[in-house]
Design a binder for these strands. Structure first.
Lengths: 156, 156
DNA sequence: CTATATAGTACTAAAATAGTCCTATATAAG
DNA sequence: CTTATATAGGACTATTTTAGTACTATATAG
């Protein structure tokens, strides 16, 4: 497993759709039609994204949603966080004090490193990459990853 | 979120414990005492790991479990897979035909790349790394990651 | 033969996720 | 100023997944 929730998956589909016309306003009903995701679900996702400042909303007649920032400035890690809350591979990564063994845990530090590596991979992919065909962003994934990982080496 | 299950977390704790004495047999009851994880849970985890050939089991009096391979030859991705099944960030990564939009999905390829990047990060960390203090394996995470990511670039 | 330990399987309980619905509020247009 | 339309926010329900338990079968050291 190690899976992103369905809502997050929808979120990326919806955001990718919006990213194709970043300057237009997209109403929830329009997005339902273009993406095939049920309206109440679309609506829920849009609200969450808007709350996280990934989308801007406009109320009233002819209202709708648009990107709050250029596609290249929103990454997948942000989207996941907006829908699911803080990314943490293990429980103790996001919330301390839950695990009884925490104080004596020998491997916590190692999980933190793994978590960081995963986060970096997700952070490296932006909406612009998602909207573009596959081959484009393989490079983008590779480059920042390498740099980040080397910082990790120094850090510890 | 994007979280590994508690059972997987227990699995790493248990495996790390066993990895410290790779040549001894460890009974489920011993492991309960050393790790603080409840016996039925320990038992369940051990069975799953043994089924996945990460552990070897010996039945009967003085039976127990030991590592099937040297600590450096079992990685975190294998452990996750043993407990939770195939790693896939999105549903369509592990099982095809579930998503109705699959044929027209524009971003499937991008999710596959992200998934691969995450998998590589997990694959790079072995039990030997988990058993060692933190600073050791930061290097191990960094190195194979870089190489793998560059292969991705070529591949697409 | 017997005590002990794993193997396998089925079941129950709890928690997280997904999805729905309803009411309030903002705004463009007549 | 009124109305139709669209988002905001929250509460609620159903479903699915995960965690944990229990029981029976099988292997083995002494």
């Amino acid at each position: 497993m190690l899976r992103v929730s369905k809502l997050t998956d929808y979120a990326t589909v919806i955001l990718t759709h919006i990213a194709h016309q970043p300057d237009e306003l997209h109403a929830a009903s329009d997005i339902t039609q273009s993406t095939g995701v049920a309206l109440p679900t679309v609506s829920k996702v849009l609200k969450l994204l808007s709350k996280a400042n990934i989308l801007m909303s406009h109320r009233g007649v002819k209202g709708g949603y648009q990107l709050a920032k250029p596609p290249s400035e929103t990454n997948v890690a942000e989207v996941i966080t907006a829908i699911e809350g803080p990314i943490g591979i293990t429980e103790c990564t996001t919330s301390e004090g839950i695990c009884e063994q925490e104080s004596s845990c020998e491997i916590k530090g190692n999980w933190n490193l793994i978590n960081r590596a995963v986060y970096t991979a997700l952070e490296a992919v932006t909406l612009a990459d998602m909207a573009a065909p596959v081959r484009e962003h393989a490079v983008n994934v590779a480059m920042p990853m390498t740099k980040e990982m080397n910082e990790l080496k120094v850090e510890t």
